[in-house]
């Protein structure tokens, strides 16, 4: 278990402000945030590669804030893999074994298991410069995992791979996590990766942790406009509560399925807005509006609809656009299910 308390790091031009974090054993924990939010910094601090200005880091109750990285018992896989160019794949994987009290037999078993799982058998005598990105990634993972680290830290493991390899690696990471039971902490800027892999996470923005919890909570109940945007709720509005479960959104009356108290923001996923030209949807807020803009995203369209003073963004399939003959200027009707509206 990792506990980070009040961790503060000042660097020229950036600082991490009083971060608090708790990663339970066997978690697949995701540190999520846009580029430059400080998530990699936090990872390096946990690993012990950055001097900390204030706060503590504990591993299984032991204070490791001042422990040098080689004694922390953690592993890290860098975004650029950081393989040793002068050593072949086998020597890279075995690099750290001699510093850990691993019995010869066990280290050989682990080596064989990792080489098999990662499909590295045919690459053992090759040097890192000759490997592809995906191969390097698997060598870096093996190099860290052979030491059986208490926690494995992954710095943006997917960002340097092409989409096909990303899917492979996601499956590999998921099965490694399940088979080895190692605690994983992953840094990512892509919420869809996180949804697939992680069970808990924290959203970090401008050096501050905005929200932490299970991935389900982060996905369904973001607590700030930034978090809402980040988890895909592209429609975020300021609201004035009226009475009970009704709110006013810039003059538009909207019914919710829950009463609002003290909330002043409303958020909504674009894919929850239903295209309803005949006005047949029930149990929903129904509005007439005008299509302002259509953006072709390949498999779907981003549709911007103006209802009185409010602009909603919806994501509809190509089929719906064609079937309802939608184009900029078209009048149409939309339905917003009450249970899709989230307030905070």
């Amino acid at each position: 278990m990792i506990e980070v308390n009040d961790l503060t790091i000042h660097l020229p031009g950036f600082s991490l402000k009083s971060a608090n974090l708790k990663v339970e054993d066997h978690d697949f924990f995701a540190l999520i945030g846009p580029t430059g939010s400080g998530k990699s910094l936090l990872l390096e601090a946990i690993m012990g590669l950055l001097p900390v200005d204030r706060g503590t880091i504990r591993l299984n109750g032991r204070d490791i804030t001042a422990t040098p990285p080689e004694e922390r018992g953690l592993g890290i896989v860098y975004q650029d893999y950081a393989l040793f160019p002068h050593l072949d794949v086998k020597a890279n994987i075995l690099f750290g074994v001699r510093y850990h009290a691993i019995p010869e037999k066990e280290s050989q078993e682990r080596f064989r298991f990792l080489v098999d799982t990662m499909n590295l058998g045919h690459l053992l005598t090759r040097h890192p410069v000759t490997l592809s990105g995906g191969e390097k990634q698997r060598v870096a993972l093996s190099r860290a995992l052979i030491l059986n680290p208490g926690v494995l830290l992954l710095d943006e493991p997917l960002s340097a791979l092409d989409p096909m390899l990303q899917d492979d690696l996601k499956n590999l990471l998921k099965s490694l996590h399940q088979e080895l039971g190692t605690t994983f902490v992953m840094v990512s800027h892509d919420f869809s990766d996180v949804l697939f892999l992680a069970n808990r996470g924290a959203i970090i923005h401008k050096g501050e942790i905005k929200q932490a919890g299970t991935i389900q909570e982060l996905f369904e109940q973001p607590g700030s406009p930034f978090a809402a945007q980040f988890v895909g709720m592209k429609n975020v509005f300021s609201i004035t509560p009226c009475n009970g479960s009704a709110v006013t959104l810039n003059g538009l009356d909207i019914q919710l399925d829950h009463p609002v108290t003290g909330h002043d923001h409303l958020a909504l996923r674009p894919e929850e807005i239903v295209c309803d030209p005949n006005g047949s949807a029930s149990g929903a807020n129904r509005f007439a509006g005008t299509i302002k803009k259509l953006v072709n995203r390949g498999f779907y369209y981003d549709v911007f609809i103006r209802v009185q003073e409010v602009e909603f963004m919806a994501q509809w399939t190509r089929r719906e656009i064609v079937k309802n003959r939608l184009e900029p200027g078209t009048e149409t009707r939309i339905a917003i299910p009450r249970n899709s509206l989230h307030t905070f």
């Binding site: 953690l74 890290i76 040793f84 160019p85």
Partner: peptide, 22 residues
């Protein structure tokens, strides 16, 4: 790259070992 030295430290090598092995 400093990263290689850092990676070596994270794998358990101290500063001296890192210098001589990396």
């Amino acid at each position: 790259p400093i990263r290689l030295e850092k990676a070596s430290r994270t794998l358990g090598a101290g500063m001296t070992s890192t210098f001589f092995r990396v």
